[in-house]
Design a protein around this nucleic acid. Sequence first.
RNA 1: GCCGCCUUCGUCUAGUGGUUAGGACGCUGGGUUUUCAUCCCAGUAAUCACGGGUUCGACUCCCGUAGGCGGUACCA
Length: 440
Amino acid sequence: MDIRTRIAPSPTGSPHIGTAWQALFDFVFARKNNGKFILRLEDTDKVRFVPESAKQIDETLEWLGFEVDESPSKGGNFGPYIQSERLDVYRKYADELLEKGLAYNDEGAVKFKMNKEGSTAYHDLVGGEQSSRGGKDISIENSTQDDFVMIKSDGFPTYNFANVIDDHLMEISHVIRGNEYISSMPKYIQLYKSFGWTPPQFAHLPLLVGSDRAKLSKRHGAKGALEYKRDGFLKEAIINFLALLGWSHPQGKEIFSLEDMIKVFDFKNFNPASAYFDETKLEWMNGEYIRRMPDEELTKRLQDYLVDHPAKEKIAPIVPLIKERIKKLSDFIPLTDFLFEKPEYDMEVFNKLKIRDIKSAVGKILEKVKQLKSPWDAKEFEGTFKELATELKISNLDMFQLIRAAVSGQLVTPPLFESIQILGEEETKNRIKEAQEFAS
RNA sequence: GCCGCCUUCGUCUAGUGGUUAGGACGCUGGGUUUUCAUCCCAGUAAUCACGGGUUCGACUCCCGUAGGCGGUACCA
């Protein structure tokens, strides 16, 4: 059987990170089995519909590299892939059930007549005894279910009805979704049965929760997936981090690629307990990816990220200096802005150094700098100022921190000599002079 | 209320009856480093929700309880 998975978000806003998380597993499972990954828009809630979201969903999947095989914008043989354009389809199947006497009209809506006898059992691919984790059998009493609306009075189907019709018509082989749908499984199974269809396989994923341990949603602090892009996270880090939420690598790996995950993926490695999204660990992982990235690649990523940066074409030499100092692409700016614009001096910064007479010390530095023969040599530079430190009876540490402050206005910067080289000798002298004037 | 899912360090997790309950993030301390960071080393932290069984032996199996979350919508 061909493997076909689907991500079926409802366009009610920018997709949050939980949607991206589910898409990851749909995508990975499809790719692992040379199957198809499908995007279907479930825009059946006219009230909550947000026009922008379809575009943002595409953008999110594209950013993460989850290439869809069939979708509203891409098309496919089972389309349309947007439910508002399939109203006649749902109507047709609703009529079929009406004819069979399995559904009835009620105040303008069409409702499904649940059989409340017995119970519904199915096998879920996620969870199971700790010892095997081969999935679990779930059974729910049918008496817990009520008749439910299939077609609303506005002519739109409900999720409960449309997802069954579309999953069958689009030949979805594996339904991967959040476990908030487990309780409704009797509805879906009975629907499949009433049409004489074989249900697909089901994998109900654990819930992603917010800091309050409630299901992740906008209200509960869920950030939009694209916000992470804006914040300077790398897609590789996001994917890797998401993969580790509820799922674990069979070899215990912490850092691994999407390709690697596709090779080893198995539902049995899911932990069915809810997981909390800890952004601190994401930041660590993002830093990890940044450090492992070749300089050229990181330069390119930074340039793509820093769209409005005035000097983005000139950042290549800076990249090696900041690579181990940033966790997110956005960290580049505060760390390097002194290289592109004059610093604003603050006496507080200078006062942190154990130097009595800042002004005269800076003056001495300026003199020494003027005497250095061009081009400046790192060893000579270092030697010169160590001597000056001894002469002024201050520590080497304070000496170099003073130079750093004079040149950048800060006490934390990329390596000093390299930064000075990027600034240029003239600019460096100018800044030291300005610092001296400021200290007066 | 009823039904379902879940319960291992603060967080993400490993764990297939016998382990000093392992790893990662975080945090703390130390080393390298002219700042910061990186890197390295060490440490911290889980009476495995609780109570009963079963067993020579239970985090692992069974029963129960509690708690959390989810569902119980013409939301998805």
